[in-house]
Design a protein around this nucleic acid. Structure first.
Lengths: 229, 229
DNA sequence: TTGCGTATAATTGTATACAATCATACCACG
DNA sequence: CGTGGTATGATTGTATACAATTATACGCAA
């Protein structure tokens, strides 16, 4: 009840505010609204067929999520993610995914572990064939399972936020067969460590996994990947 | 401009929404509003002499900060922090403060370093005399300087959030002369490592510092401290 | 007495009207 | 020609009115 459980209310599909929030968030993350674009309350409201009130409330939330910046009496502007931000997030995630993997050792359920194994098995199939869209989905899901398995609303929420935040660039990092295969092998190693309840190893492997993902991203030209969107 | 810079707008003292946000936040953190208290828009509005609109917007922000939970069509309730949440946050902070200290080694300015030294010097004075209110202030400020010095908007924002979030319980952890002195000694060691640009040592010391703070809190009866508020 | 259903009150969700602020353009003046 | 000030329009900030939803209380029937 009194949990750190936020996303649920925010993403409320049945309130206008929630719909506006989701739509604008999507549009920012997908690149429809670009850095420094000005978001006007009336325009967004008309586009979605709602008044300014829910739009304004959604804006306040987007501001706290760091997706837009609101300048009083002036307007709402889309905040960009700089390359530095991406780097910072990956470094932070590296630490936190390690923690998450370690905690998952204690709390993962049999069902979650089985879904992980299935995920890895399926990912191998798609990785070999260069199905990058599916790979991206499976990668997201793998981490999502781990977030759920760590049994900490706080950490789960934090990691999910970052995961979403770097979505724009993350997809690119899996866009080679080599990296897809390597990434999946790393997933398998992490899963095995968690299965064996070896928290120390799980921590190290998950930490390294994010490090590798970042290194790979830099190597494959983060700059272009980033500026394309 | 396009920074991850949020707090500034939120704490805008000159908008009604900002005033409401700050007031309610204060009241929650200070314990005026207790866990599971229902916050009614009209009541808060009347108390501050404003209409519901700015109150609602402030509520949305408080929700994302995790201080209240909004149940659609029902109401806003003060979220409690469970002991598990506190533990999780300290574990996460432990990792991130380490990262922060390491980064600060590269980016800290001479002014920031000097303020740290001054902070530690002054804290010694107050610690010896059992001035816990001042200690709490100085402790907050020490960490704040480090957050600023790490040169990462993302990490700074993240750590500041957690710091605020556990404010309720954090004050209690410094409420003995022994812990105050020990804490300050740890601050000094961290500062010296940062001054010497020894990132590895700074990381370890900051990590340990938060660990110690948590251990101390548990020892001194987190349970009572927590349930008192 | 207990249980259910309806009516009423209270509260939140949304829309709109009005006030305040900011940006722009135009004109007067040096 | 350039500069400054004012007027006008656009946009956000706030208040209020209305709609929808939820909680509560009361009455009726089993």
């Amino acid at each position: 009840m009194q949990e750190f459980d936020l996303k649920q209310e925010v993403t409320d599909k049945y309130s206008l505010r929630g719909r506006v929030f989701n739509k604008v968030r999507e549009d920012i993350l997908s690149g429809k609204y670009k850095e420094n674009d000005e978001l006007k309350e009336i325009a967004i409201g008309e586009e979605l067929g709602v008044s300014r009130t829910p739009v304004r409330e959604a804006f306040r939330q987007l501001e706290l999520e760091g997706l837009i910046q609101i300048i009083p009496n002036k307007g709402a502007y889309v905040t960009g993610i700089t390359m530095n931000d991406v780097k910072d997030i990956y470094m932070i995630r590296s630490k936190l995914e390690g923690l998450c993997a370690a905690w998952a050792c204690e709390h993962i359920t049999k069902e979650q572990l089985e879904e992980m194994e299935e995920n890895i098995y399926l990912a191998k199939f798609h990785a070999e064939r260069g199905h990058f869209e599916q790979m991206s989905e499976l990668d997201s899901r793998f981490h999502e399972i781990m977030y759920e398995a760590c049994n900490s609303k706080i950490l789960e929420h934090n990691l999910r936020d970052y995961h979403q935040y770097v979505m724009r660039v993350r997809k690119k990092t899996l866009s080679t067969i080599d990296r897809s295969l390597a990434s999946n092998a790393e997933h398998q190693a992490i899963m095995e460590a968690i299965r064996d309840k070896d928290a120390k190893r799980a921590d190290e492997l998950a930490t390294l996994h994010i490090h590798n993902a970042y290194e790979n991203m830099v190597k494959n030209g983060l700059k272009e990947a980033y500026s394309n969107e």
